[in-house]
Each structure stands twice: as C-alpha cells, then as structure tokens.
Simulated assay, not measured.
Amino acid sequence: MKTSGNTILVTGGGSGIGRELARRWHELGNTVIVAGRNESSLAETAEGHANIHPMVFDVSDPADIERFVRDLIGRFPALNVLVNNAGIMHYEDVTTKRDLADAEATVVTNLLGPIRLTDALVDHLARQDGAAIVNVSSGLAFVPMPKAATYSATKAALHSYSISLRAKLEGAVEVIEIVPPAVQTELTPGQSTREGYLPLGTFVDQVMMQFESGAPPEVCVPNALVLRNAEKEGRFEEALAITRSF
C-alpha cells in the first residue's frame, strides 16, 4: 500500500486506533474519511485536519451500509483504501445461560460489518489504482481471552476472512491485516490507563513504521507476536494463561 495520495475510509474513526491511524495517514498526504455512529467523536477526530472528513453510519445496519456507500462514492469517487477498524468488546460469562444480546451485537459489528462493507465496496476498489483493504483484527484472534469469548472468536474469523480475501483478490486489491496487542484505548472501560497495555501512540508509531517501509500482509508489532506466534512456538497454554489473567 502506498503511503500518500490515497483516499482512505477508516471505520471506527471516532476514537482509539481508528482516530490515530486517520490522523497519521492525513499527515502523510492522504484524504481520509472517518466513519462511525458518533457524529461528535468523528468531528473531534477531524478538527484541525483539513482533509479528514467525518461521515456518520451504522456498521451494524445492512441498509445503512448501502446508503452510506452510495453517499461515500458520490462524494469521494477516488476512494481506494478501506480500513475495517470498527469494533466492540464485551466481557461475558459463558458458564451459564444468559442474555445473548451483547454477543450477537459483537458478531454483527465485528464480523458481519466488515464482510458487508467489503462486499459493498469491493467492485469499486478493484477499479482503483493502489487499492487496499486493511482489516484490524487482534492478538486475541490467535489466543482467545476467555472472558471475551465472542470478541476473540470474531477476530479469529476476521483473520481467516482476511486470508481468503487476500488469496481471491491477489493482483486486484491488496489485503493487509493489522494485529493489535493489548493497547491503551477505551475499547473497554479503564483500558486507556491499564498498566501493562501498550500505549496507543507507541502502537501507532510501530504500525506506521511498517506501512512506510512497505506493509507486510500481517502488520504485527512486537507485543502482538507473543500471541500471534504462541501456537507455532509451543507456547499456547502459557499464552492462554496470560489472556485468562487479563
């Protein structure tokens, strides 16, 4: 993926990883659209950045995705990069019967959302020069956090989906997966100051270094490799013990 001259859509661009990636790509000379549900948060991301453009949509609503994509391509016909970053995370007790509303919302937002948005944009992207799809998964795709079982499962599925997309879109659209470790964001309450989690700025610095030097198919910062390579290195049970303690 080239580092400048793109028109980039970042979902979940109102906070956390999405916000910081949007601002860094803007600094490199890209047009960036930040999209999500919270208009005020998106406006905050864009404030002071002339070429960051907020657009409101609901990634969990198929009809709104179709409406959003029509508006998006109408306003930004040069769009050539999709960043599927929007996601939610809920802790859950899977040991007893419960209300599955949070689990179902997690599947819809974290997995069906990227699948639907990719489907809505793939024909357009395939016609663009330098086209790319960037999916933001998680180290928990490789070693789950048991108290966030559904979140972990959706990220494992997104990792698998990214591999399939990469194989099928080879030569037409580049497919890159960003694999975050535990990062200090507000994905869960109090996480932005949690000890032992990677500071957001450090994480984004490390990600952008890889993009600027030619992003590999999987962008794994050093902290993410502890989980990404656990099974291959025979450390899976040890790594699971770590995620169980989070």
Rank of each mutant, 00 (worst) to 15 (best):
L140Q: 11
L140D: 15
P146H: 07
A132N: 15
D99V: 00
T106M: 07
I133S: 13
G130P: 05
A103E: 06
L112T: 07
H124P: 14
L121W: 10
V143Y: 13
V134R: 13
L121I: 07
V94K: 03
L125F: 12
D119R: 02
V108I: 12
N110G: 00
D99I: 02
I115F: 12
V143F: 11
A101R: 01
L111I: 03
N135A: 06
F142A: 10
L112M: 11
L121A: 06
S138P: 09
T96I: 01
F142R: 05
V134Q: 14
S137I: 12
N135Y: 06
I133V: 15
T118F: 10
A141T: 04
A141R: 07
V122N: 02
L125K: 12
R127A: 13
N135R: 00
L112W: 11
Q128Y: 10
D129M: 10
V107A: 05
M145C: 13
P144A: 09
D123M: 07
N110Q: 00
R127K: 14
V136L: 15
D123S: 12
E92W: 02
G139F: 03
D102S: 04
E104Y: 02
R116P: 07
A105M: 04
V94S: 11
R116S: 12
A103Q: 13
F142W: 10
R98A: 03
T95R: 03
T95E: 02
D119A: 04
H124E: 15
M145E: 05
A141D: 04
L112I: 02
P146D: 07
L117N: 09
G130T: 01
L100C: 01
A126P: 04
G130Q: 08
T95H: 02
K97P: 10
D119F: 00
P144E: 09
K97I: 02
L117M: 09
P144H: 06
N110W: 01
L117T: 09
A105L: 03
G139Q: 12
M145P: 04
T118S: 15
T96E: 07
P144L: 08
V107W: 04
P146G: 06
E104G: 00
A103N: 12
D102I: 00
P144T: 03
I133W: 13
D102F: 01
V122I: 13
R127L: 10
G130H: 08
E104Q: 08
L100S: 02
R116I: 09
M145R: 12
F142G: 06
A120R: 06
L100I: 00
T118A: 12
P146F: 05
P146C: 08
R116K: 14
S138L: 08
K97A: 04
V136N: 14
T96H: 05
R98E: 04
D93I: 01
V94C: 05
D123N: 10
L140T: 09
A101T: 08
E104L: 03
A105C: 03
A131G: 15
D123R: 11
T95Y: 01
L112P: 07
R98Q: 08
L125G: 08
A141Y: 04
L121F: 08
K97E: 01
T118R: 09
T118G: 14
A103R: 13
L112V: 03
S138W: 02
A141C: 06
H124I: 07
K97G: 01
F142Q: 10
A105T: 05
A141G: 12
